[in-house]
């Protein structure tokens, strides 16, 4: 159980990625990065990850949302914990008029807002990984 957890970051801003990657690696996680959803998907197909950190606004719009939806429909990936890291909150009204983003609209486990305090990020990551481990434990029993 001491094996290092492997996380995938999908975000199109290399400078931002650098910022969270350093925090995650500092906490002894292994990280891979994809700078767009397409590469992200390929990475997820290539190997198993314990958690996905996903940006919303990429490319021509809210491509992160499409990616999250696609993952939830994929039989192999639907159990993957997804943490959305986004700069947009209620300003996303053009996608969901009058509503903020929340898991009712985007099938993910949790949201944090950019920029994210290191402690807060690590805490969210830990709790999602723990929840996933618990789920897995129950399933195998």
């Amino acid at each position: 159980m001491s094996e290092r957890k492997r996380l995938l970051i999908v975000d199109d801003d290399p400078d931002f990625v650098e910022g969270i990657r350093a925090i995650l690696e500092g906490a002894d996680y292994e990280t891979d990065v994809a700078y767009n959803p397409k590469d992200g998907f390929q990475a997820l197909k290539r190997r198993a990850y314990d958690l996905l950190l996903l940006d919303i606004m990429m490319g021509r719009g809210a491509e992160g949302i499409m990616m999250a939806r696609k993952i939830r429909k994929d039989p192999e990936l639907k159990e993957l914990p997804v943490l959305i890291i986004t700069g947009i909150r209620e300003q996303i009204a053009f996608l969901f008029p009058g509503k903020g983003v929340h898991p009712g609209y985007v099938p993910v486990d949790e949201f944090v807002e950019k920029p994210v305090e290191p402690e807060h990020l690590l805490e969210r990551v830990r709790s999602l990984l723990d929840a996933a481990a618990t789920r897995k434990g129950k399933a195998s029993r």
Binding site: D13, F16, I23, P118
Partner: peptide, 14 residues
């Protein structure tokens, strides 16, 4: 606007 600022701040945290 917030994208670049977030990137700066995130690196500042690190």
């Amino acid at each position: 606007l917030k994208g670049p600022l977030s990137a700066v701040q995130q690196n500042m945290f690190v």
